[in-house]
Design a protein around this nucleic acid. Structure first.
Lengths: 335, 335
DNA sequence: TCAAGGCACAAAAACGATTTCGGAAACGAT
DNA sequence: ATCGTTTCCGAAATCGTTTTTGTGCCTTGA
């Protein structure tokens, strides 16, 4: 009974050809006002809505792009998605989000016919295509932009983590003191590992080297990516010394753990102990945490723009955009 | 040059008919091992991958469902999405997320041909379809399940907020004291308003009534949905009385504001002042906050199951599932 | 030996739109 | 009146699959 109403039915009811209906629907102008009205009346009367699948099939366009990302819910991805979405909306594109919520999903998205690839373009956030696809490849004809990660074969937009670490280093150097870096232990057997923490460390070291300050190997403390990791790091540092210290936490979550643990021991971060985090999480301001802030929305917006460009124009050469982070100085590190 | 390789090309190279290729691809069994191998070789050689749009066009199936939701990034939606995603993955379906990140998006999604409706089913989270579509309608032939909101015309899965409020009420009643409810001021001109806070209040009142306890009108304090709202409420309560109090905050964010403000005034919640929140946010445990916990993952999972059922079977009658929340008692309200 | 049935595959129709091509009618200029 | 030009619209091709129908050959059993 409920056989979907097609463009044929509309044409028939309106007493015109299907091609005419199509022209009306797509707003072409070589249709007289009269027929246009007739068609529109028929459309409404039948409650016709075009079969999107057929349309996509014929035109090869969906007016949408997919975003594959490791997860959702973190401040980072929220901001990234917002940046992407705003630009896309501006250009009348829609965005479908495909978070890799489970290993099973990951497996499914290795299939090059999976829904995410059924769009005009693809944004891959923080995901290395080689690791995501193991043996395979991203469909070659699918315009793709990487974000938060670089790859020689694809357009990318990233933030310079070396520069971020460098900024933190230079800033902490303003007041000499024993210096520590709290690192993340990354597992490199997942598609999620990015190596950005190492880059932040590298930039930090570079800053110190420029001033001929040495960072002893055992002042780099490696912990897990968690609040508890930060707390453990703080305990470790307290075990090693008393008195002033400069600490660079390679992410804010760690910094939070550090602050809380220091507070627990009666030490207020911001005096003797200076601390700089990384990310500028929403709570960082309330915590008075100095931190390296990344232009995440811009990153998303740029990626979207790049992608749209790639979708519209024939291929060009691979483009890499590297954005600069910014140091936000708050009480936790003021000299 | 890069004209996509189609099933025709595969057929030609393999020296078989397209229908045979199709059968191989879809795993039908009336194909000899020999031809199957021939076809597979041709597929690999050409790097053929089926045109998903054409497939969808022909079969009318996408093996994916869309989830439209007001936003992403909150704990609630994270958990909901996880619940949905797990069930879908289990049944070989994919989920596309479409958050209403901007008014512009909202506008776009009013178009019944927008990408979200281009799926086998639709889950609408916390969104009233009538308000979402204003004049219009969700495409009638698109299986749809509502979650976190009920509607006579659609399947739905919700949690009983009245019961949640009731649980909070009964619990706080264990120790008599002046009782306050901190409410959210909801704006009902958006598609997001749900009225759940009023239901929580209603349940709370019911609990009190059963014990013949009166809740004075001016003990219901209405504030904005924010941490600051909670702080203001705390100030208001302190202005009204000193000594013991029972407080029901209709969401955890408010409760957090209350706790922080009380702490700021040197009052530790959990003694004289007892407090119950709502939501069981991730930080609630660390805060020792008693709260009403909703089975959010289950809600998502159930919704997904309902939707899959609706996709597979011919329509049945509308189904409403109402889940029960659970009271989690922690230090903030222990007697 | 022959009819019946099954197997493996081919041929062709169908899905619902867009797009190309071309023709009739209307119009203006000569 | 004739000859372009527009303007408007219809016919038909087309996109890449799946699905239905058909067919030749091989087996089986009487």
């Amino acid at each position: 009974m409920n056989t979907r109403v097609s463009i044929q039915d509309v044409a028939q009811l309106a007493g015109v050809a299907v091609s005419t209906v199509s022209r009306v629907l797509n707003g072409y102008r070589d249709v007289s006002e009269e027929t246009r009205a007739k068609v529109q009346r028929a459309v409404e009367q039948l409650g016709y809505r075009p079969n999107q699948a057929a349309r996509t099939f014929r035109t090869g366009k969906t007016q949408s792009v997919s975003v594959i990302l490791p997860m959702i819910g973190t401040d980072f991805y929220n901001r990234l998605i917002n940046g992407i979405d705003q630009v896309l909306a501006l250009h009348d594109y829609d965005a479908g989000l495909f978070p890799l919520l489970s290993p099973r999903r990951l497996e499914r998205y290795r299939n090059p016919s999976a829904p995410p690839y059924n769009a005009d373009g693809l944004i891959l956030a923080s995901l290395n295509p080689d690791r995501l696809f193991e043996g395979g490849q991203i469909p070659a004809d699918l315009p793709t932009v990487l974000v938060d990660i670089a790859h020689t074969a694809y357009d990318s937009v990233t933030v310079d983590h070396i520069e971020g670490g460098y900024l933190a280093g230079k800033h902490l150097l303003e007041r000499p003191a024993p210096t520590f870096v709290v690192m993340i232990e990354e597992r490199f057997d997942t598609p999620f590992a990015s190596g950005v923490f190492r880059e932040r460390l590298k930039g930090f070291q570079r800053a110190l080297e420029e001033d001929s300050v040495k960072l002893p190997k055992d002042h780099v403390i490696t912990v897990e990516f968690s609040w508890d990791g930060g707390r453990l790091a703080a305990q470790e540092i307290l075990r090693r010394l008393e008195g002033p210290a400069n600490i660079f936490a390679t992410c804010d979550l760690l910094a939070q753990g550090l602050i809380d643990e220091f507070a627990h021991k009666g030490i207020k971060v911001g005096g003797e102990v200076r601390l700089v985090g990384y990310d500028d999480q929403p709570w960082a301001e309330a915590y008075g945490l100095s931190t390296v802030k990344q232009p995440i929305e811009s990153m998303g917006g740029l990626a979207a723009n790049l992608l749209l460009k790639r979708i519209k124009r024939p291929p060009a050469e691979v483009i890499h955009r590297v954005l600069s982070p910014r140091l936000v100085v708050r009480e936790s590190s003021r000299v």
